[in-house]
Write a protein that binds this DNA or RNA. Structure first.
Lengths: 184, 184
DNA sequence: CAAGATATGTCAACATGACTGACATAAATT
DNA sequence: AATTTATGTCAGTCATGTTGACATATCTTG
């Protein structure tokens, strides 16, 4: 009654009207498996944090900002924009809330006094730690039965999935092409 | 000048005021590496499709709907809601557009005439194939230098990241706990 | 020093894709 | 006949993204 029709048959006959007018689908080559596993894995991975964030009146945008500010103390606003790939205006709203509510503080740059360097407060650190704890628990569980070679393959795969043209400061740190390292 | 302060030092002194009033951060146990790799990998993975979708005047929501309708022909509206974890109203808007523009067709259920079974048209299939092609290219590139054991570990890891309580019909198909299989 | 470039902040208007709550219809179940 | 289920839709709201314009402070350059 509530079954999906999972048959391997082609789409409904009515949907075949224009068949042949589009490029060959090369369906056999598609990595449907990885595509769908990434969708579900990421959905549940971020879902962990979403529940907690509600209690704070925050959303995913706040989490992303807090995370990178905590991890890379002294991050500039411009660097954050590169990492998150959003506009100044979008970041502004979220950042203002985090500043107002005391999760982040700004410090004027030493060399360049135009810069506002961002740091997590103790309150901000606690939030990041809580959320990272939930996500780490899920990751640890998922890695439990995988040997070191397997874990290395996972790490290599995820790295290779990331665009390397024009890497931002955080990516340089992650890939070790910069000389500096993230916190912890 | 445009450098992040990547120092390992603690957060800015002003941020330490309330230290000790929050749970111990257990920072050493955190899988910062995987957390951040997942963020960047998924960002760039979905970014592939985003560009193409703009040309069609569609967004990510349309992609997700098209993908699962193509992959699981005859999917019901209710099943789609389970998979995407959005509300009927949210899905309604996107689905209506895809129906109106001829990417998807509905067919009244045989056993239960209340159901509207969903199928991709040839036009819809072409769109899904195009987007899956881009994502498959990225995945294939990322897997190029990884041996079969490594690929197995990646698959196992992604599966283990997914919540298994109350799995929807699509997840049952992916995990093989249902008897039916997806298309292709 | 004056001029221009840069880093940041902010205003207004708008789009997308989520949400809640309420209600309608047709069809199946009890 | 009454109830439940599957779907569709209306109205309003919210979070988070967008563009374009403009202001201010500060650094760099001619």
């Amino acid at each position: 009654m509530t079954d999906i029709n999972f048959s391997r048959s082609a789409a409904h006959p009515d949907s075949q009207g224009a068949a042949g007018t589009y490029p060959a689908p090369r369906a056999g080559e598609m990595r449907w498996d990885i595509i769908e596993l990434l969708f579900f894995a990421y959905r549940d991975f971020v879902g962990d944090a979403d529940q907690e964030l509600e209690a704070f009146g925050f959303g995913r945008a706040h989490h992303r900002v807090m995370h990178f500010v905590y991890r890379y103390p002294g991050l500039k606003v411009a660097d954050l924009l590169d990492v998150l790939r959003i506009t100044k205006q979008s970041l502004g709203r979220v950042l203002k809330q985090l500043l107002d509510e005391g999760y982040i503080i700004q410090k004027t740059g030493n060399n360049d006094r135009r810069q506002r360097l961002l740091y997590a407060t103790a309150k901000g650190e606690a939030l990041v730690a809580k959320l990272a704890g939930l996500q780490t628990d899920r990751i640890t569980r998922a890695l439990r039965d995988i040997n070191p070679e397997g874990v290395a393959a996972i790490s290599q795969f995820l790295r290779a999935m990331i665009d390397r043209d024009d890497p931002d400061k955080v990516l340089e740190a992650i890939f070790g092409t910069g000389s500096k390292k993230p916190r912890e």
